[in-house]
Design a protein around this nucleic acid. Structure first.
Length: 879
RNA sequence: GGGCGUUUAGCUCAGUUGGUAGAGCGCUUCCCUUACAAGGAAGAUGUCGGGAGUUCGAGCCUCUCAACGCCCACCA
């Protein structure tokens, strides 16, 4: 073993190491999956980030958790594939490019469709690799050779295949319906892309005069500007107030248009005035009412939400925006004494998820997917266990949505995306839905594109080569094993993938959906650019290192998937841990001199050796079980506790003593290395770079299974040790060490001064561990006796651990009062516990009902406490 | 209107089947002990949101109240 420790810096240099190690993996194609492998498969597809996106903390968390799963399963013996890729992100990307154009005072219409799409492609290609390269900085071990894009040839082909098939099955239809219209995007958006916000508005009461009778009917509305599109006034059929008015005709104020008063169950007679204006072209409920009464809709706004230039609208209002039109309408109504009342009214208003613009419910011709038939299998999937949500509570959310799902508006009036494969005959208008244009000379393709989630809904199988069912990847890696994502896209994405996958492959696209929390800032606010509270993961990586980022994020993940609040300094936690790993490894490396390649000699293990081996085995078993159950945060914390708390703080310190013993040295080296090496494997999925780097530093590494890379080594399995006795003994020794250190510190025994320790009690054990005691508490002389002692020699301090008393003569140092105080405090503490336990044991019902083990442990503990208290009391007396 | 989540140490949060509370940061004291001061050692700190119930025993189960947050629905 020849390692020049001087070459290894004291502080872990994350940035240098991480780049070097990632390059090493890439160069050696370590992430490449083999579709011909005989090993069982583990596969995942990345939730494709927006092609023009920038890595944010959400990606960092999502990517880290995926990479942990991938690396774990790769080590655990699975043929593992993680497919990377990006999403063309229809509206989002188009918006970005349009914004760029606006800077040049251009709109997409100035460029025309073809040129515009070309510009977006350029933009996308330019940014395409950027975000995945940022994922590389996270250490993502995805297979770049299989990188995909939702708008690439394969995905586009899958989209066409699916669209045509659904259309032929009658599951896609075209029709005129009220949709959520974003006048800024100039497109329809789906229900779930509409976000409702409570807004303070007004309720206007407008008087509609009767045509043939004296009087009027008063209607309450929040949107007076739509009154020109009214086609009726509706009242509840059972409303006695209006019984006589049903069938009458009223005149829309400011116009001379006549509309009927109709009766419809939809109207709630207790709300407002009990009379509702019906505007079918601009309100979803009104549209339904109008349909029932065969009333033709009247549009009053165009696609930009500007008032139309039509006769029924007063001239001064034509061409105005919605907002201006409202003001103007209200003004005119006032002038004409048609406005009865204005009240404040809080109501929910829909906004475009992408740009925040107020949504206009708008009647237009769109394409829809019939969801009910698709939902059936998706509902069955979770009920029969083919699909699981982790944590389980998301199952209910998913089911509620699926069971009440409404048809999905999939057409978007955008240019960037998959153009709908429907073709219209230029003369007859006849429509053909097909993968290719039947006759480009005579047919023109539908100008709409598909909702971006349509193509991402196919992602788990379109990336595997589907619709080619002979594709090796599809056969080997589909269905995928786990999908990792945040709860915010369960409806947008997860649900759609399940729908589509069942319809086209007959299978659930993944076995498990692991839902993690969202990243928030330190105040619990969602991170957003507009709030200026984002933390840039790349900045964190630069400052603290990638493994530090990964460790901190992982350790904060709870099984329940709570949101995670972070601030910059939280990453010190991970960085410090990385440095601890680094330095513990340095220590081991500088002490491997003379070690051989033989296995640990089990026959000459010390108590300390057995203690750490048993703990390693236990933590290994726990880690495996936690990984199987998606308790990834717990896994992180357990390895941390083991490595830092048991290995570094205890075993390494004990090993230093053993290394000085020529008889123990070699085997201690073996144990030190063995435990470190296993720890590196345990840690690798979370902290891949540092662990791989250390592995690469040690020429010794190949002796186990000949793996060149740690990331390809087997994940450890628990051993079958039976060292519980030694663990208890070592724990007792550690407790003694702590008690004596406590004594030293509270009596202000100077660090330099040597002390003598007299031990009375468990001679057998403390003879074995005396070297540890001596060194760990800096004892000069030590006596060990199996006798007991009840009276202290003059000027001595003492402590009791289990059945053993430790006496330290401290002539000239000890402050008797202080020692008394210390002993009293200790007694008080023990007595408190004893009283509590005695209370329990004296309760007949407890004795009657509690399990025997509990009663026995309680009794034993009371006896132990009593003994200790007595022992301390005795010793205190002689102070 | 319906549903979900949260409430535990000064701060941020863990706490898997009910057995009497933990971590990190911060704080106090000591230590640059030949892996690590991004460190080591020893400590202090909690009527586990309020109330009631089940139980021998509740942070954990039931009910209820409160506060905060989120999702879905959307009566003009």
């Amino acid at each position: 073993m020849n390692i020049d420790i001087n070459e290894i810096p004291i502080n872990y240099q994350a940035n240098e190491v991480e780049k070097e190690i990632y390059d090493l993996w890439e160069k050696n194609e370590c992430f490449k999956a083999d579709a011909d492998s005989n090993k069982p498969h583990f596969s995942m597809v990345i939730p494709p980030p927006n092609v023009t996106g920038v890595l944010h903390m959400g990606h960092a968390l999502d990517g880290t958790l995926q990479d942990i799963l991938v690396r774990y399963h790769r080590m655990a013996g699975f043929e593992t594939l993680w497919v990377p890729g990006t999403d063309h992100a229809g509206i989002a990307t188009q918006n970005v490019v349009e914004k760029k154009l606006r800077e040049k005072n251009l709109t997409r219409f100035d460029l025309g469709r073809e040129k515009f799409v070309e510009t977006v492609w350029e933009w996308a290609n330019e940014h395409k690799s950027a975000i995945l390269n940022q994922f590389k900085r996270l250490g993502a071990s995805f297979d770049r050779s299989r990188e995909r894009f939702t708008l690439d040839e394969g995905c586009s082909n899958a989209v066409k295949e699916v669209f045509v098939s659904l259309y032929n099955k009658g599951l896609i239809y075209k029709g005129a319906y009220i949709v959520n219209w974003c006048p800024r995007c100039r497109s329809a958006i789906s229900d779930i892309e509409t976000e409702y916000k409570t807004e303070q508005g007004h309720m206007w009461e407008i008087c509609y005069p009767l045509k043939d009778k004296v009087g009027a009917i008063v209607v309450a509305t929040t949107r007076p500007e739509t009154m020109f599109g009214d086609v009726a006034i509706a009242v509840n059929p059972n409303d006695y107030k209006y019984k006589d008015l049903v069938g009458e005709t009223v005149i829309i104020p400011l116009t001379n248009k006549e509309i009927p008063i109709i009766a419809d169950e939809y109207v709630d007679s207790s709300f407002g005035t009990g009379a509702v204006k019906i505007t079918p072209a601009h309100d979803p409920n009104d549209y339904e009412v109008a349909k029932r009464h065969n009333l033709k809709p009247v549009w009053v706004m165009d696609e930009d939400a500007k008032m139309l230039d039509i006769d029924v609208i007063p001239e001064s209002i034509r061409g105005l925006s919605r907002e201006e039109a409202r003001k103007e309408t209200v003004g005119l109504l006032k002038l004409n004494n048609a406005l009865l009342d204005i009240t404040d009214h809080e109501h929910n208003v829909g906004h475009c998820q992408r740009c925040g613009t107020t949504i206009e419910p708008y009647l237009s011709e769109q394409w829809f997917v019939k969801m009910k038939p698709l939902a059936e299998k998706a509902i069955a999937a979770v009920k029969n266990g083919e699909l699981n949500f982790i944590p389980e509570r998301w199952t209910k959310i998913y089911l509620d949505w699926m069971e009440n799902v409404r048809d999905w508006c999939i057409s978007r009036q955008l240019w960037w995306g998959h153009q709908i494969p429907a073709y219209y005959h230029n003369e007859t208008g006849e429509m053909v839905v097909a993968k290719e244009n039947p006759d480009p000379a005579h047919y023109t393709q539908d100008s709409d594109v598909l909702d971006t989630w349509f193509s991402s809904g196919l992602w788990p199988f379109s990336t595997m080569g589907w619709p080619n069912k002979e594709s090796k990847d599809f056969k080997k890696f589909f269905p995928t094993s786990v999908l990792v994502t945040g709860f915010d896209i369960i409806f947008f994405w997860v649900a759609r993938m399940v729908n589509m996958s069942y319809e086209f492959t007959g299978k659930s696209p993944f076995k498990n959906v692991y839902i993690h929390g969202l990243i928030r800032d330190e105040h619990g606010q969602k991170m957003s650019k507009s709030k200026n509270n984002t933390i840039d993961p790349v900045g964190i990586i630069d400052k603290y290192g990638c493994d530090a980022l990964r460790y901190t994020l992982t350790s904060m993940c709870t099984y329940g998937g709570q949101d995670i609040k972070i601030s910059d300094d939280k990453f010190e936690y991970g960085r410090n841990f990385a440095n601890k790993i680094w330095n513990a490894s340095r220590f081991v490396m500088m002490n491997l001199d003379g070690m051989d390649e033989n296995e640990i000699d089990r026959s000459s293990l010390t108590i300390a050796d057995k203690w750490i081996l048993q703990k390693l085995s236990d933590v290994t078993a726990d880690v495996r079980s936690n990984m199987e159950n998606f308790r990834i945060g717990e896994y992180a914390n357990q390895v941390y506790d083991f490595f830092w708390g048991s290995y570094c703080d205890r075993y390494v310190e004990l090993a230093k003593i053993q290394l000085n013993n020529p008889e123990q040295k070699l085997n201690t080296q073996r144990v030190l290395w063995y435990v470190l090496e296993r720890s590196l494997r345990l840690l690798h999925p979370i902290m891949p770079h540092i662990t791989e780097k250390i592995w690469q530093l040690i020429p010794f590494k190949v002796y186990k299974d000949g793996q060149k890379f740690l990331m390809k080594c087997d994940f450890p399995t628990a051993n079958q040790y039976k060292y519980s006795t030694e663990v208890a003994q070592m724990d007792k020794t550690i407790e003694a060490i702590k008690a004596i250190r406590n004594l030293r510190q509270s009596l202000n025994v100077p660090a330099g001064s040597q002390i003598t320790l007299n031990i009375y009690g468990d001679k057998e054990l403390f003879e074995q561990t005396q070297a540890f005691l001596k060194r760990m508490v800096r004892v000069e002389n030590m006596t060990i006796s199996s006798e007991t002692i009840n009276e202290l020699p003059p000027q001595s301090a003492s402590c009791v651990v289990g059945d053993t008393k430790f006496v330290v003569p401290l002539a000239g140092i000890i402050d008797i009062e202080k020692e008394k105080e210390r002993q009293n405090k200790k007694i008080e503490k023990l007595a408190k516990e004893k009283t509590s336990l005695e209370g329990r044991i004296s309760n007949d019902n407890f004795v009657k009902n509690a399990p025997k083990e509990v009663i026995d442990t309680t009794k034993a503990r009371i006896a132990e406490l009593a003994e200790q208290i007595e022992a301390i009391e005795e010793l205190k007396k002689s102070l």
